[in-house]
Design a binder for these strands. Structure first.
Lengths: 244, 244
DNA sequence: GTTGCACGGTCTTGTATAAGACACAAGACC
DNA sequence: GGTCTTGTGTCTTATACAAGACCGTGCAAC
């Protein structure tokens, strides 16, 4: 029986959510694993089934767990499928989601720029790893991208990415190799003109309009874990947003 | 007592949600009005309080109602506040949401273009109203915008917009004058170069990169009710997206 | 007499509990 | 290959209490 309850002002179902969240983040419950059945878990936590279900519903909404009637409740696998569906909003003109191919063009480590430090909530000059990628959509080079990662969170950057190709499985890799579970992101969109370098990379005229996407990604604990700046050639693709 | 239940395969709380949704859309419950208290409504519909609450929670998530502990449940007012907060995603560099000012530059009616017809699910050549606007952010002209509305849904286009200025209150107007409740939208984003006309309007160089926003808005019944094409000058502003 | 305000009472939604019927999935058994 | 059993999540109901908001009463101060 836990010490939940009154001193903590938050509703019980929020406290339960936090406890379960912690079990997932800490690795006590591993990716893809089934968690205990509802009655069992409710008994263990000393709350009613209804309260537990409410907490589980919130975790499901955040994509941390998946529930299947008749089978059980599972910790989400950060599959490439899922990560792409959640975070990659690019469609072709037919409205079909596309899968990007990725080609790494450079990996470096150095002190954070002021902007990187601000966006990633680092102290000025803290080390960041940077990965530059070219990404292809439907066979054509369409995205120029730089990813900045706090070096403190990714010691040694033990990424198997020296080879030229790496899928969008970076998030999967984050989770498996560094215990970081990505759950949300903020993106700022604007328009920019292609530099010479970008034009060469993307095969478009210098000065062509590109969609500039600046994304900060957060993990389950709310920490910023990635700054990603992408330049998308929108001659054949769109960035899709649904507003509810 | 209604004829809910078994023949309809959907869960009861979904059926209840649909009933309440209909009461709001039909105007039986008017904007800003309080709806009956939970016990009363549950009794009237012949369902338990818990089931009713679940339906109300879903309506609240769709911003159709607002619930306040101790006071009651109210049909949402499509206030300019709310409509802007939900649909207008533009921020300045400090991250602060900005309110646009609007200046109408033209209103016309004519047959829909193929693209308009497709996006608004109209038959080819059906009539649409078009409103052209210039919008200012923090005092500067930043957005060139064209709005296309199915004429069938907006008979006569009885808008009080002959004068040059009209706030972002178009959605409020939709609701009050035409009984259309806007609840969701899909946006496609891309980058485009400013034409001469746009450059003149926005005070930017010809060919400058603009963020092109194509939005289709849907009402509570799921009908497309508006196609809006905006060109945003992102020299001083950003389009913000949150991914959960 | 009038104003101001504290106190209760009563209405509302929010939280938490419990219990049973149901639907789906998987494996055991025949 | 069917059928049964068991274990799971899903739906629905019912009840109780907590917490916020509102309103009127009635006392106190002026």
């Amino acid at each position: 029986m836990n010490e939940l309850r009154r001193p903590d002002a938050r509703p019980l179902y929020v406290q339960v959510e936090a406890i379960l969240n912690e079990r997932i983040v800490s690795g006590e419950w591993k990716s893809g694993q089934a968690i205990p059945a509802e009655p069992e878990l409710a008994a263990e936590l000393g709350v009613s089934a209804g309260t537990l279900r409410r907490a589980l519903a919130r975790l499901e909404q955040r994509h941390l767990i998946e529930r299947r009637q008749g089978r059980g409740t599972y910790v989400s696998q950060q599959t490439s499928q899922q990560a792409l569906g959640l975070f990659f909003r690019v469609r072709n003109f037919a409205g079909k989601p596309v899968r990007p191919e990725s080609f790494i063009t450079g990996v470096t480590t150095g002190p954070a720029t002021p902007e990187e430090a601000a966006r990633l909530r680092l102290s000025p000059g803290e080390a960041v790893h940077r990965i530059d990628r070219r990404r292809h959509l439907e066979g054509e080079p369409r995205i120029a991208e730089r990813i900045a990662l706090p070096a403190a969170l990714f010691p040694g950057l033990s990424l198997p990415l020296a080879p030229k190709q790496l899928g969008a499985e970076i998030y999967v890799h984050y989770r498996n190799a560094h215990g970081i579970i990505v759950v949300s992101a903020e993106e700022d969109l604007s328009a920019a003109s292609a530099t010479e370098e970008e034009a060469a990379l993307l095969g478009c005229p210098v000065g062509a309009p590109l969609l500039l996407i600046e994304r900060v990604t957060f993990d389950a604990a709310g920490r910023p874990v990635e700054l990603r700046v992408s330049r998308l050639d929108t001659r054949a693709h769109r960035y899709a947003v649904e507003i509810v």
